[in-house]
Design a binder for these strands. Structure first.
Lengths: 148, 148
DNA sequence: CTAAATTAATTGCTATCGCAACTAATTATA
DNA sequence: TATAATTAGTTGCGATAGCAATTAATTTAG
């Protein structure tokens, strides 16, 4: 096994995954930049952009762009918070609700492609290990930002 | 454990990883788009763009752009093949050779950040599982392309 | 041996992404 | 209470990425 291969695998899997997501959701006008945002709005109705960014671990600017696009497509609607007018909350529209089953099943299919022929303990293990890696990297990047 | 989490972890780790790579190699003018290409030219002197693309699993257009940039930075030089003038072969320059140890150690550091606190069997396991995922996804995307 | 098909490299286009700078609203402080 | 600091959202910018179309060189077929 070559050294440094973990990062290489992550990058190459990410790129293939993006291709599959784009293909899967093309018919709905949704690309790999929007589907995670859409799902997280579905899971947390009324969430604001800052919290969404933290959940999805994506830059605020891109969260904003995804929301703009999803709104233009009619899958979500946004409202300013009455008490704090800085905050903009997003919820699914009816059209968005209707789309969710397709999104979920599409993502399920992609996951199945990725872990095809994995034994049950391996499916468990890969998720655990990836979670740990994410935690490590996130913590480290955060520490870099806190320094500056 | 949530469903669809594998893809989410891959994406978020990829983005953090890109941030770290960009920071690590900023001083050399090299970003996360070029370092893999550079390493693979070092490992396979005289490789052409098509083979590089297949190794790195990146689009030919981007391989081309990375080579252009690395050449402009003086880390590699390119030569047309004498027998087949379609083919352009890339090799490290002396400046490139001198840079390699820093690149390798930088990537080693990033890998260590990612798998901090991993036990030895886990380090083994994560690489195996990621390799299998990459194989699955690559095969699937390839099958899609062959259909059309 | 010429025309068609294939191959490798290249360019234009659009999407995604992080960062830095900015605006507007809110909160803290002097 | 008025000013400063913070917070949430927004915009511009440059880098990375895949796809499709183009060009130039080579190979295959008629």
């Amino acid at each position: 096994m070559e050294k440094h291969s973990i990062g290489r695998y992550i990058a190459s899997i990410y790129r293939y995954q993006s291709i599959l997501i784009n293909k899967q959701f093309e018919q709905y006008g949704i690309g790999c930049g929007q589907h995670t945002i859409l799902i997280n709005i579905a899971l947390n109705p009324g969430i604001n952009q800052k919290d969404l960014s933290e959940r999805v671990k994506i830059d605020r600017a891109n969260t904003h762009r995804a929301i703009k696009k999803l709104e233009a497509l009619g899958y979500i609607h946004t409202d300013r918070d009455e008490d704090d007018k800085q905050i903009i909350r997003s919820c699914l529209t009816e059209k968005g609700e209707k789309l969710m089953p397709s999104i979920k099943s599409g993502l399920h299919d992609i996951t199945e492609i990725m872990i095809k022929n994995f034994e049950d303990p391996e499916r468990e293990e890969i998720t655990n290990l990836l979670q740990k890696i994410e935690e490590n990297v996130q913590k480290y990047v955060k520490s870099l930002r806190d320094d500056s």
